[in-house]
Every structure is written in structure tokens, then in C-alpha cells.
């Protein structure tokens, strides 16, 4: 089905959304429809995250997400630089809100209390280390060295916050938005912590003589 939204140019979108007449009403209605479809598209792709919700709750949540993204877009119209189609620019607001909502729903009842942040215990699977015994002895020893160095950096060279975020996200695959919510912070701060942690680990691995290709070859041969 062909919608009006596909037929507006970027200029028309901006002019009509900023207008003060029935044209604005029509543009907002079309944009809302587009955003609701975007949210439902995302929800459909992530239905397993919404497993505990009834159908009408999902549809209501989609309406809320669409409304929230509509408001965000109208508040950010001045930020649109025209470096993409207006609709592409608009999708990202709805996608961001819908994915965050779906992940939050998925992790709602999950307790993270059992996760240890001491990093003194083994972070890497025993099973993995046993498996690697099939490789040449030298290689196996070097793999252990890399793991030991990483574990040591995590235990001694990271701040408590960096260690906590790294263990949650890298070792337990907790999504960023969930970590953001539980630690009461924002994505930029979490990304910075992980970036700093990666920089430290990279620097120390290289300082100990483990260069890129050599280290990656050590581990990619295990498959």
C-alpha cells in the first residue's frame, strides 16, 4: 500500500511538520503511522523478548513507543541536516525506542545478583581450556598466557566500574541498555568505560609481545 509519507520530499516533510494548519495535522498523522509501523516491525523481529506480554499489551506498548518517538522527532527537527531521506532519519528514533523497550522487557525479571565482579575466579570456561589441549603444546601455553594477561588486567588494572561493566556486558552478554538502566547512567558513559578497558587490555597485550595477527591466529584456529 502506497502511503503519502513515501511521496513527500525532505523539504515537504519539514515544511508541513512546521506548518500551522491542516497540512501539519496530515503530516503528523502520516509520520505517526510510519513510526508505529517501525515500532511494530521491530517488535515483530524481537517477539521472543516480549514473550510475557499479551497481544493487546504489545500493541499498547507500540503505540506508546510511536508517540514517544514522534515527540522526540518533533523536538529534534532542527537537527535534521538533510544527509539522508527524512524517513530514514525518523526511523532511527523509533528503532532506538522500540529496541530499548523490547530489551528492557526481556531483562525485566532477570536478577544479576549472582554475578561475581571480583574477577579473581576464572572468567574463561574450563571447558574451553580443555578443548584447546588438542592444539600444539606451545600454542596451548600461549593461549593460556593471553587469557591470564586479560584476566590479570581485568582484576588489577581496571576501575571497579570498568570491571563491573565489562563482566556484565562481555562475559554475561547483558545488553547495554539494561546496564545503563541498572547503573543509572547513559550509553556514552558505558561505552567510554568499555573503550578504556579495551585500550588497557590491548596496550598490555602488545607490551607483553602479543601482536594482533599472532594472537588472533592463536584463537581462530580452535574452530
Amino acid at each position: 500500500m502506497l502511503l503519502m509519507s513515501n511521496m513527500r520530499t525532505n523539504e515537504e516533510w519539514l515544511t508541513e511538520l512546521r506548518a500551522d494548519d491542516t497540512k501539519q495535522e496530515a503530516a503528523i498523522a502520516d509520520l505517526r503511522n510510519l513510526l508505529l509501523r517501525t515500532v511494530l516491525f521491530i517488535f515483530n523481529r524481537n517477539l521472543s523478548d516480549l514473550g510475557t506480554l499479551a497481544r493487546d499489551e504489545i500493541l499498547r506498548s507500540a503505540e506508546d513507543c510511536a508517540q514517544e518517538s514522534l515527540i522526540a522527532i518533533l523536538n529534534h527537527l532542527d537537527d535534521f541536516r538533510g544527509d539522508s531521506k527524512f524517513t530514514t532519519w525518523a526511523y532511527k528514533f523509533a528503532v532506538n525506542i522500540a529496541l530499548t523497550t523490547a530489551r528492557r522487557e526481556r531483562w525485566k525479571g532477570v536478577s544479576l545478583d549472582q554475578i561475581s565482579f571480583s574477577a579473581d575466579g576464572a572468567l574463561f570456561d574450563r571447558e574451553l581450556q580443555d578443548k584447546s589441549s588438542g592444539s600444539a603444546p606451545d600454542q596451548s601455553v600461549m593461549q593460556d598466557d593471553v587469557r591470564d594477561i586479560i584476566q590479570e588486567v581485568i582484576a588489577h588494572d581496571l576501575t571497579e566500574k570498568q570491571r563491573q561493566v565489562l563482566i556484565l556486558m562481555v562475559f554475561h552478554e547483558v545488553p547495554m541498555d539494561e546496564v545503563v538502566q541498572r547503573l543509572g547512567t547513559n550509553r556514552n558513559a558505558i561505552y567510554k568505560m568499555l573503550h578504556d578497558a579495551r585500550r588497557k587490555i590491548k596496550g598490555i597485550l602488545q607490551a607483553r609481545g602479543f601482536e594482533v595477527s599472532e594472537t588472533l591466529a592463536l584463537f581462530s584456529t580452535q574452530k
Binding site: 532506538n96 574463561f124 570456561d125 574451553l128 578443548k131 584447546s132 567510554k192 573503550h195 588472533l216 574452530k223
Partner: peptide, 29 residues
């Protein structure tokens, strides 16, 4: 952490740059 994930993560570690853009800048662009 399983072997293939460690492999991926090591690639990310070595691909780390001194300066990286934030999530907000990424969203913007």
C-alpha cells in the same frame, strides 16, 4: 566465555582506537 566469542572479542580489542566516537555521535550520524 566460549572460544568463538573470545576470538571476536580479541578482534575488537585489537581494533580499538585511541579515540572513538560516542553512542550519541553515532546516533547523530
Amino acid at each position: 566465555m566460549k572460544g568463538d566469542r573470545l576470538d571476536k572479542w580479541l578482534k575488537n580489542i585489537y581494533a580499538t582506537q585511541q579515540e572513538e566516537i560516542s553512542c550519541t555521535e553515532c546516533f547523530d550520524l
